[in-house]
Amino acid sequence: MTKNWPALKLELTAPPVTIPETVEHLLLVFSNEDKLAISAMNQEDLYNLHFTLSPAIQNGRLNQVDSQLRAACGTYHPDDVYHVIIGALWRTL
């Protein structure tokens, strides 16, 4: 799912600070196949992505979840931030 992180990392000048910016950046990374797989998931199953997608986000350009993004997500715990982002990504798809 994350084969394009290096390319994205080079393109970005600053990490996203809002949920829509974060989703937009993730949409640049994923292939159409990945997007289709995520969009086809049931909302209840999104927690399964936490162990695969969250580390990918952490290892990519989004690795430093700053206070603005945490505030936008309504939480300051990184795991909760990633849960909010994954949900927003799924709803967008």
Results as ranks from 00 to 15, higher is better:
residue 12 L to V: 11
residue 12 L to R: 13
residue 13 T to M: 10
residue 14 A to W: 11
residue 15 P to M: 01
residue 15 P to H: 01
residue 15 P to Y: 01
residue 15 P to T: 04
residue 16 P to R: 02
residue 16 P to E: 00
residue 16 P to C: 08
residue 16 P to T: 05
residue 16 P to D: 05
residue 17 V to Y: 05
residue 17 V to R: 15
residue 17 V to S: 15
residue 18 T to E: 08
residue 18 T to D: 02
residue 18 T to R: 06
residue 18 T to M: 03
residue 18 T to F: 03
residue 19 I to W: 06
residue 19 I to H: 03
residue 19 I to D: 06
residue 19 I to V: 15
residue 20 P to W: 03
residue 20 P to C: 03
residue 20 P to I: 04
residue 20 P to V: 08
residue 21 E to N: 03
residue 22 T to I: 02
residue 22 T to K: 02
residue 24 E to Y: 05
residue 24 E to S: 12
residue 24 E to D: 15
residue 25 H to Q: 14
residue 26 L to Y: 06
residue 28 L to S: 04
residue 28 L to Q: 11
residue 29 V to P: 02
residue 30 F to N: 05
residue 31 S to G: 04
residue 31 S to Q: 08
residue 31 S to D: 12
residue 31 S to P: 06
residue 31 S to W: 01
residue 31 S to I: 01
residue 32 N to M: 08
residue 32 N to H: 09
residue 32 N to R: 07
residue 33 E to P: 02
residue 33 E to A: 14
residue 33 E to W: 05
residue 34 D to S: 14
residue 34 D to Q: 10
residue 35 K to W: 01
residue 35 K to F: 00
residue 36 L to K: 12
residue 36 L to R: 12
residue 37 A to I: 03
residue 37 A to N: 06
residue 38 I to F: 04
residue 38 I to T: 02
residue 38 I to V: 14
residue 39 S to E: 11
residue 39 S to G: 13
residue 39 S to A: 15
residue 39 S to D: 07
residue 40 A to P: 02
residue 41 M to G: 01
residue 41 M to T: 02
residue 41 M to Q: 03
residue 42 N to T: 02
residue 43 Q to Y: 01
residue 43 Q to I: 06
residue 43 Q to M: 04
residue 44 E to K: 11
residue 44 E to C: 00
residue 44 E to H: 04
residue 45 D to T: 04
residue 46 L to N: 07
residue 46 L to P: 09
residue 46 L to F: 05
residue 46 L to K: 10
residue 47 Y to H: 12
residue 47 Y to A: 11
residue 47 Y to C: 04
residue 47 Y to L: 09
residue 48 N to I: 12
residue 48 N to F: 14
residue 48 N to Y: 13
residue 48 N to G: 08
residue 49 L to C: 04
residue 49 L to H: 03
residue 49 L to A: 05
residue 50 H to V: 00
residue 51 F to D: 14
residue 51 F to V: 13
residue 51 F to H: 08
residue 52 T to D: 11
residue 52 T to R: 04
residue 52 T to V: 10
residue 52 T to E: 08
residue 52 T to Y: 09
residue 53 L to G: 01
residue 54 S to E: 13
residue 54 S to M: 10
residue 55 P to F: 07
residue 55 P to C: 03
residue 56 A to I: 05
residue 56 A to N: 10
residue 56 A to S: 15
residue 57 I to A: 13
residue 57 I to P: 09
residue 58 Q to D: 10
residue 58 Q to P: 00
residue 59 N to K: 11
residue 60 G to K: 06
residue 60 G to C: 07
residue 60 G to H: 09
residue 61 R to W: 01
residue 61 R to M: 09
residue 61 R to G: 08
residue 62 L to H: 04
residue 62 L to G: 02
residue 62 L to F: 07
residue 63 N to I: 08
residue 63 N to A: 12
residue 64 Q to K: 10
residue 64 Q to F: 08
residue 64 Q to D: 10
residue 65 V to I: 14
residue 65 V to N: 07
residue 65 V to Q: 11
residue 66 D to C: 09
residue 66 D to W: 02
residue 66 D to L: 09
residue 66 D to V: 08
residue 67 S to P: 05
residue 68 Q to K: 15
residue 68 Q to S: 14
residue 68 Q to E: 14
